[in-house]
Simulated scan of single mutants.
Amino acid sequence: MLWEYLVIEKTLNSDKLNELGAQGWELVAVVSPGHFVLHYFFKRLLKE
């Protein structure tokens, strides 16, 4: 299995999270390296 990854470094609302989920992205982690900053890490199967 091969994966592709996506990192988004801004706050996402539920509509955007649902849109990414519909595209096959799975949220695997959310990290806050500083105040009011969120980094979202997603993965999905690589389409060959």
Results as ranks from 00 to 15, higher is better:
Met1Thr: 11
Leu2Lys: 12
Leu2Pro: 08
Trp3Glu: 07
Trp3Tyr: 13
Trp3Met: 11
Tyr5Cys: 02
Tyr5Gly: 01
Leu6Gly: 01
Val7Ile: 12
Ile8Asp: 11
Glu9Asn: 07
Lys10Glu: 15
Lys10Ile: 09
Lys10Ser: 12
Thr11Ile: 13
Leu12Arg: 10
Leu12Phe: 09
Leu12Val: 06
Asn13Val: 11
Asn13Tyr: 13
Ser14Ala: 01
Lys16Asn: 03
Lys16Val: 11
Leu17Lys: 11
Leu17Phe: 04
Asn18His: 12
Glu19Gly: 04
Glu19Phe: 04
Leu20Ile: 07
Leu20Ala: 04
Leu20Phe: 09
Leu20Met: 01
Leu20Glu: 00
Gly21Met: 13
Gly21Arg: 07
Ala22Val: 08
Ala22Tyr: 12
Gln23Phe: 14
Gln23Asp: 02
Gln23Val: 02
Gly24Val: 15
Gly24Thr: 07
Trp25Tyr: 12
Trp25Glu: 00
Trp25Arg: 06
Trp25Val: 03
Glu26Trp: 02
Glu26Leu: 06
Leu27Arg: 01
Leu27His: 05
Leu27Ile: 02
Val28Lys: 07
Val28Asp: 02
Ala29Ile: 15
Ala29Leu: 08
Ala29Ser: 09
Ala29Lys: 12
Ala29Trp: 09
Val30Asp: 05
Val30Lys: 03
Val30Leu: 09
Val30Phe: 00
Val31Lys: 08
Ser32Asp: 03
Ser32Thr: 02
Ser32Phe: 09
Pro33Thr: 04
Pro33Trp: 05
Gly34Thr: 00
His35Ile: 13
His35Phe: 13
His35Trp: 14
Phe36Leu: 14
Val37Phe: 09
Val37Tyr: 15
Val37Met: 06
Val37Leu: 15
Val37Ser: 11
Leu38Gly: 05
Leu38Arg: 15
Leu38Ala: 08
Leu38Met: 15
Leu38Ser: 15
His39Gln: 08
His39Asp: 09
His39Lys: 12
His39Phe: 15
His39Pro: 07
Tyr40Gly: 07
Tyr40Pro: 01
Tyr40Phe: 12
Tyr40Trp: 14
Tyr40Cys: 03
Phe41Asp: 03
Phe42His: 00
Phe42Ala: 00
Lys43Ala: 03
Lys43Val: 03
Arg44Lys: 05
Leu45Pro: 05
Leu45Thr: 01
Leu45Gly: 02
Leu45Tyr: 03
Leu46Gly: 04
Leu46Thr: 09
Leu46Gln: 15
Glu48Thr: 11
Glu48Trp: 15
Glu48Leu: 09
Glu48Ser: 01
